[in-house]
Design a protein around this nucleic acid. Structure first.
Length: 270
DNA sequence: GACCAGGGCCGGC
DNA sequence: GCCGGCCCTGGT
């Protein structure tokens, strides 16, 4: 067990932020996460956060995973005072961070995400994990399932994917997995590219368009300048930034602001 | 029960 | 560059 006091961190907000789909609330203030083939429980009260792992594991995996070395306070402070919308958005999702998830998991998850809603995306991914992910046992002697490897997904028939409710996305997933496994697309090489090149390269994949590519850049490669425009962000831009979003003022990290805005659009001033 | 829309993309024009 | 079609289902 590790206990930390963390600023700019809210596990519930991160869970609801739509960037990851395997972080689930299990009881009040308590969440479970399956990532990096590990099982983790997180319990938060105020700034005090408990992680169900050793200090070594925390340092080795989770500190980086939750992007705890990034100063989000500084990013928030950089927002212009006159920008009422962003100020409100940042206040609303003050504990959001951009996780450092597994690249393949992000690619598959956001292929599934298109023209879909978050509860349904979570259900589909859960089913894929239970059917095709490696089964493991956690510290409570309970079973859990890892995210399925590309090799396993590539073996499946489209009908198997249809059975997991992927619908018309089945063909995208099947072909993308095959392409990666057969060595025709190196996802590792993406790490050596800048945002523009990585985005362009990702769009070569069948089923990956501009928006999904941006999500993969932002959530999979941690290229925080990527600014995915989905239907919510599109509506927001049309409503509050008719003369254009001030990207020039937030060069290099607009994607983090996108995430605050996305969350604010979803959950608003509740 | 009906209807709309969801972290869009592809293919045809 | 624009537009129709698309699997399925959560939410109203």
């Amino acid at each position: 067990m590790v206990i930390k006091r963390l600023k700019d961190f809210d596990i519930q907000q991160i869970s609801n932020s739509g960037q990851c789909f395997r972080l689930e609330k299990v009881e009040e203030n308590k969440f479970q996460l399956i990532a990096r083939e590990e099982y983790l429980e997180i319990e938060q009260k105020g700034e005090e956060v408990q992680f169900s792992c050793s200090e070594e594991e925390f340092e080795k995996i989770w500190k980086l995973y939750f992007d705890l070395e990034m100063d989000y306070g500084r990013i928030k402070k950089s927002i212009e005072k006159e920008d009422i919308y962003l100020q409100k958005a940042v206040l609303c999702g003050a504990g959001i961070r951009i996780l450092r998830q597994d690249l393949w998991e992000v690619i598959l998850s956001f292929l599934i995400s298109q023209q879909n809603n978050i509860p349904r995306i979570k259900k589909i991914i859960k089913m894929l994990c239970e059917n095709y992910g490696e089964r493991k046992i956690n510290f409570k002697e309970e079973e859990y399932f890892c995210f399925p490897k590309a090799e396993r997904i590539a073996q499946l028939e489209e009908s198997d994917l249809q059975a997991c409710n992927l619908g018309y996305r089945s063909k995208y997933v099947k072909q993308t997995a095959k392409c990666i496994v057969e060595g025709n697309f190196s996802i590792e090489s993406l790490w050596g590219m800048d945002y523009k090149k990585a985005r362009e390269k990702l769009m070569e994949l069948y089923g990956v368009g501009a928006k999904v590519a941006d999500c993969i850049c932002l959530f999979g490669l941690h290229q925080i300048e990527a600014f995915p425009v989905d239907t919510h962000i599109k509506q927001m831009l049309e409503k509050y930034y008719k003369n254009g979003f001030p990207f020039e003022k937030y060069q290099g990290y607009a994607g983090i602001l996108q995430q605050y805005a996305f969350y604010y659009e979803l959950y608003g001033d509740i």
